[in-house]
């Protein structure tokens, strides 16, 4: 069991459209990610990196191939099955933060815990703890509109953390931030990774990818490179 990868993609293909309009976004991808890794996925636009991210995040289903999560085939799960998998094992961080507007930082972080069915007091406690971990203690009752971009992304990371996931999936987490904030966010993700959380991140910036331990590059829906990050920050 010890050598079972946390995430294993086997011959994954994702095809959009049919006939003439057919687009093969992913075309036979094999990828294994072990517990505790920090993987950066790079590639030009249309290379399939976002599609791969969506499939790993169980937001999308592969057209062909098998996806094993902790050794269990989850590629056949229906909508609700995938929702439960996301709820219990995955945390998401997006480029556009995707916080609920006019909702306090604390309530945003509580969101996944509501669907986990935790009672109110426990939710608040966990959400506070998560905000503390990302360095936002004292900002619990701020609206997203009252927070800077970097702070909003921290709230989003806290939200991903609150559900105590096995993996955090970050899709261009620094895309909307200036370089100073970007590096702070990356340091935070790196620290969380050191504390044991597996991180999978899509980015198109070399210096951001340098925070990861492993670099995966997609080109035309296929894996072009898969190598450890040598000059790790």
């Amino acid at each position: 069991m010890a050598d079972t990868p946390l995430i294993q993609l086997q011959g994954i293909a994702r095809v959009y459209g049919e006939g003439e309009a057919e687009v093969r976004a992913l075309d036979g991808v094999d990828l294994a990610i072990r517990k505790g890794e920090f993987v950066a996925i790079m590639g030009p636009s249309g290379s399939g990196k976002s599609t791969a991210m969506n499939i790993i995040g169980c937001l999308d289903r592969p057209t062909a191939g098998r996806y094993l999560f902790e050794g269990t085939d989850v590629s056949g799960l229906d909508r609700d099955g995938r929702a439960l998998l996301r709820r219990h094992f995955l945390g998401f961080v997006f480029q556009g933060f995707n916080l609920l507007p006019r909702t306090t930082a604390l309530e945003n972080v509580e969101l996944p815990l509501i669907y986990k069915g935790l009672p109110h007091a426990e939710r608040v406690a966990k959400a506070r703890l998560a905000l503390e971990r990302v360095g936002l203690a004292g900002r619990e009752h701020h609206d997203p509109s009252q927070l800077s971009g970097g702070q909003q992304q921290r709230v989003a990371i806290a939200r991903a953390l609150a559900g105590e996931p096995m993996v955090i999936l970050a899709d261009e987490p620094t895309g909307n931030l200036d370089s100073q904030r970007s590096h702070e966010i990356m340091q935070l993700l790196q620290q969380l990774n050191r504390e044991g959380i597996t991180v999978v991140m899509v980015t198109h910036e070399e210096d951001i990818a340098a925070y990861a331990s492993r670099l995966v590059v997609f080109v035309d829906g296929r894996l072009a490179r898969d190598e450890p990050v040598v000059a790790r920050v």
Partner: peptide
């Protein structure tokens, strides 16, 4: 729509 997307992403089922 975006709010619904966020809720679905954090694990809300269609029924919820």
């Amino acid at each position: 729509t975006r709010e619904i997307g966020i809720r679905l992403a954090v694990g809300a089922t269609a029924g919820q």
